[in-house]
């Protein structure tokens, strides 16, 4: 092969390599024009962070839902489900994001609260991955289960907001499977807490706090046992 050809192949290889290297963090979804620049920048930053996660291993349930506990896997999971991002109030004053499967199941809506409220970064990511699970038409968008009434924590106290008095009892805010939106996102976070090698200690602490909280929303004893065996038994 001539020198000039070799040079050409080399350049092509470098360019292809660059393209492949950047693909792991690429956003396949588009943003509507009305998404404010600061909200868009925050979502991109959050997804870039999750795209860098490196995990030593992953729990069996995590393997089943996502695959490995690493950035490219999470990025692909999200990109495979969310094709566009728009702005909405999601019907409630406190919402950060939502999916309206009846309108467009591949679209995620963000609210101004995404940056207005001071949630830890892992909490925003939890909400985004929770909502991304609701895009799955082939799984009936993983509908939630009705929380039992009364809805008690392990200490026997009713699970409700101390501030608003709002109770989850009788509300569609629970899951009966590890594979729904609450289960999958808490499994993701718990794996990050346990296995992430390049997350800060703060991120891992936060992942544990939010995962443990979301675990309360799993109400089926078999599902609870599955998750306990998967993530809490050692």
């Amino acid at each position: 092969m001539k020198k000039s050809n070799l040079l050409g192949v080399g350049i092509l290889g470098v360019i292809v390599g660059l393209a492949l290297a950047s693909s792991s963090a690429r956003a396949d979804y588009s943003f509507d024009n009305d998404v404010p620049a600061d909200i868009k920048a925050q979502m991109i930053a959050d997804m870039q962070f999750i795209g860098t996660v490196q995990g030593t291993t992953a729990s069996p349930l995590h393997q089943q839902i996502f695959g490995n506990a690493d950035g490219p896997t999470y990025t692909k999971f999200f990109n495979d489900r969310v094709q566009s991002v728009g702005m909405s109030d999601c019907g409630m004053g406190n919402a950060v994001a939502c999916v309206n499967a009846g309108f467009d199941s591949s679209k995620m809506w963000l609210t101004e609260n995404f940056i207005k409220f001071s949630h830890p970064q892992i909490a925003r990511i939890m909400v985004m991955f929770h909502e991304s699970r609701h895009t799955e038409d082939n799984n009936d968008n993983w509908p939630h289960a009705t929380c039992p009434s009364p809805f008690l924590d392990p200490s026997g106290n009713e699970i409700k907001s101390i501030w608003t008095g709002y109770s989850l009892a009788g509300e569609p805010g629970c899951d009966v499977t590890p594979f729904g939106s609450y289960g999958s996102s808490m499994i993701m976070l718990k794996n990050i807490q346990k296995f992430c090698t390049n997350c800060t200690d703060k991120v891992k602490m936060d992942a544990g706090l939010y995962a443990d909280d979301q675990f309360k929303r799993i109400i089926d004893s078999t599902a609870v046992q599955q998750i306990t065996t998967d993530l809490y038994s050692n």
């Binding site: 409630m92 406190n94 609260n113 909490a123 929380c147 501030w163 709002y166 609450y182 706090l209």
Partner: peptide, 22 residues
């Protein structure tokens, strides 16, 4: 989250309250 001194004006919802207590 909007105002620590006052209750949320927007009401509560099982979905949007996700993680808020934490």
């Amino acid at each position: 989250m909007a105002d620590c001194a006052h209750h949320s004006a927007g009401g509560a919802d099982s979905h949007s309250e996700m993680g808020t207590e934490i």
